[in-house]
């Protein structure tokens, strides 16, 4: 009997833990939009954390601000504009494609082209090596080697 009561009490205790992870957002749709957006934004206090994942107080304030703006009906682009107006492109993990970032975006392609060029040059060199001509004496020596089993 005692065991039964104990087991029942244990079972009763379990659901209490289940509620802990529930988000305390009033509007789950806006919360989801905010998190989607903030995952690609940099927290300016701990620079290697996203705005969605950071516990810094400023990150919390900014998340609050993003929520408030979304509630006012602003779309994601307008919210991003609000942030980049204040913190610059630095808040974006994915920098925009513009003259100062051309090298950043096109750099990998440049390196690929360099690599292809080097590869082509090496291949070409090898081909000319293979095409080296043998003179008569060498040819005869090679023939002899092949027949001399």
């Amino acid at each position: 009997m005692k065991t039964m009561i104990f087991a029942t009490l244990l079972a009763l205790g379990l659901p209490a833990y289940a509620g802990e992870a529930a988000p305390n957002a009033e509007d789950p749709v806006i919360e989801q939009r905010m998190i989607n957006l903030a995952t690609d934004l940099r927290c300016l206090v701990c620079q290697n954390e996203s705005l969605a994942g950071s516990h810094a107080e400023l990150a919390e304030d900014l998340r609050k601000e993003i929520r408030a703006q979304m509630k006012l009906g602003k779309n994601d682009k307008e919210v991003l504009e609000y942030l980049t107006d204040r913190y610059g492109d630095y808040v974006l993990y994915q920098p925009p494609f513009k003259p100062v970032t051309y090298l950043l975006w096109l750099g990998p392609l440049l390196f690929l082209l360099l690599g292809l060029g080097a590869w082509y040059a090496a291949l070409k060199k090898r081909r000319t090596l293979q095409a080296a001509q043998l003179d008569e004496a060498q040819r005869a020596a090679a023939e002899k080697l092949l027949q001399d089993k």
Binding site: L58, D61, R86
Partner: peptide, 12 residues
């Protein structure tokens, strides 16, 4: 509230 700070892009 820290809102003016945000308007100035204050990070710390």
């Amino acid at each position: 509230s820290g809102k003016v700070g945000i308007d100035y892009g204050v990070t710390g």
